[in-house]
Write a protein that binds this DNA or RNA. Structure first.
Lengths: 336, 336
DNA sequence: TTGTAAGCGTTATCAT
DNA sequence: ATGATAACGCTTACAA
């Protein structure tokens, strides 16, 4: 049979409440009994029952993460598993567990969230996506259930979130290219409606303007999806522009397509930078430079934000901005 | 305040035990009261408290999965997240939740397993790896704690496991190449000690022998790690052999390296097949054919096996073999 | 068929 | 500083 707090109490010849107190480091306990109890615990190999504890405390120390069901790249984009690791590592330091669940569709997803938030299984949820007018966000807000979202939500005030500074990421990148001698830089993005897309375009634009370089529509192509073909087609359009020496993209797949076009047309000295630092970029020849969005840190801070709220202590911080990192590879070309 | 079973009982004017019975579909309950209780449940929006239920039942319906901490390719190999999805989808159909945790090192990993198996948080564990003389496996066996492993363990008798038939996967592949006209086929593997490596080599060998084709050491290169450079070096050795028209590898990264060599030397009509169906293989030019190990199904059956054991019903099945699938791409060349 | 009440293993309140 | 004991919200004998 499992050893319970009663067994420990008996062994140490104290009441269960006393054992519970040493377990929670209650200060009002004498050194002698504390020691005696600890010995009993060690001797019996006692481990508190998580369920009983949760029931009594009315908190489970379990976080629920909901993975987006619609993400086509769930399996190929290391973002998800990497940020899951970031969450896990942080959560462990605070004694939290994490459950995850995939859903078949939006409805299943919402139902799952309803379930775990109503059956007291979890203390808070981590959303790995934010979209416009998100049903789940609305639901959680109505219910006043603690949650955090990775990605900037519409309502940035009352919600906990973590995200990259996409404006800055692209601004810095384009500036760096300019410093390296590039004067005409193309931009390839996809799905204009997304916050992320708009921010990255803004960063690009701001950098050009601040350097008093040409900024006009012929330098920009927006596609409807992140894939290689769209990258290829975009490159075809962009290179009609005379003197283009660099192209920035908002995803490695787009960059991949651009590279194919560059190769097909035997172009030289074209700088090319992708986003997300995926394995495909790394293993191309030449290898494609990319912006790492630091998924692990995003996960880390998401967990941190949520747990801080749950424990109701410390700063009332509502969000974290995680810095991106340029990974320079073969396609980071200096012109001069 | 949360609505509890008592509220429902009061609303339906019955005892809590009655509510509990309709919840668990106990047959000894009249249709009329069942209906009344269900109405009360709907009206109040009642959802049973998972913790209280677990405590009473002494089972949590939570599975714990332990990710290998040493896997370098954890983030780039879609295997992990894909099989996690397979588990999740199956587990949900049976009303189970899944927790996961990453560890910093072996010690942290073992400690985590000890923790969750001792604090009654989970009913069973899923191991995403098996290695020789595995501490965690030993621990779980000693403790008689239910678990399943993905990958064939040393002791295949007393342990639940799921795996591919690696002998068959490679045997079928090599046979197919032979049918397509290849007579001299090279093999590139890594980490010979692994069961997987040995099985795939055996499949290769058997196929050659069964077709009465040449099988000798010059056709085989074993490396110490799965990476592109090792693939490249292996190809350099293999192509000293006259008339080689195909190379099979045990990983896409090895295949990638082989392809680089093939390109560097302007070779034509070389069939090349990788393993794991990763994104890098798909996005090469030419795209590399690969064996998909069907990670989702591995996860699915792992969860199924474990849950069957936990519910103590149905077949006493101890393992599942999951079929692999060849994904033909550009590098699947027919000679005649 | 339904109700009563004793657990399940903790924590927390109230005494002492 | 420590001990009794009542929650926490459910399940499950045992009664009726």
């Amino acid at each position: 049979m499992k050893v319970t707090i009663k067994d420990v109490a008996k062994e140490a010849d104290v009441a269960t409440s006393t054992v519970s107190r040493v377990l929670s480091n209650n200060p009002r306990i004498s050194e002698t009994t504390r020691k005696r109890v600890k010995e009993a615990i060690d001797k019996l190999g006692y481990e508190p029952n998580a369920m009983a504890r949760s029931l009594a405390r009315q908190r489970t120390k379990i976080l629920g993460i909901v993975l987006p069901n619609e993400a086509k790249d769930l399996f190929t984009n290391p973002f998800f598993i990497t940020s899951m690791q970031g969450m896990s590592l942080y959560a462990q330091t605070k004694g939290y567990y994490i459950t995850y669940a995939f859903s078949e569709d939006d409805e299943g997803e919402l139902n799952h969230v309803k379930e775990i938030t109503n059956n007291n299984l979890i203390d808070g949820v981590i959303l790995m996506r934010s979209r416009q007018n998100d049903e789940i966000i609305n639901y959680l807000q109505d219910k006043r259930f603690p949650f955090v979202v990775i990605g900037r939500p519409e309502d940035t005030e009352s919600i906990l979130w973590v995200d990259n500074d996409n404006v800055k990421a692209m601004y810095d990148l384009v500036n760096l290219l300019i410093e390296n001698g590039h004067k005409k830089i193309g931009f390839v993005g996809a799905i204009e409606e997304w916050n992320m897309s708009q921010d990255r375009l803004k960063g690009y634009k701001d950098a050009l303007i601040d350097s008093k370089l040409d900024y006009h529509d012929n330098l920009i192509v927006q596609q409807n999806e992140f894939n290689a073909k769209n990258g290829y087609d975009a490159a075809k359009k962009l290179f009609k522009e005379e003197g283009l020496t660099a192209i920035v993209t908002t995803d490695d797949l787009l960059a991949l397509g651009v590279q194919e076009y560059v190769k097909d047309n035997n172009m030289k000295d074209i700088a090319l930078i992708g986003f997300n630092n995926s394995q495909i970029a790394q293993y191309q020849k030449p290898s494609i430079s990319s912006i790492d969005i630091m998924a692990g840190r995003l996960g880390h801070y998401a967990a941190k934000l949520l747990i801080s709220k749950l424990e109701g202590k410390g700063s009332k911080r509502k969000n974290y901005i995680v810095d991106t990192k340029l990974v320079e590879r073969d396609t980071f070309i200096q012109i001069r």
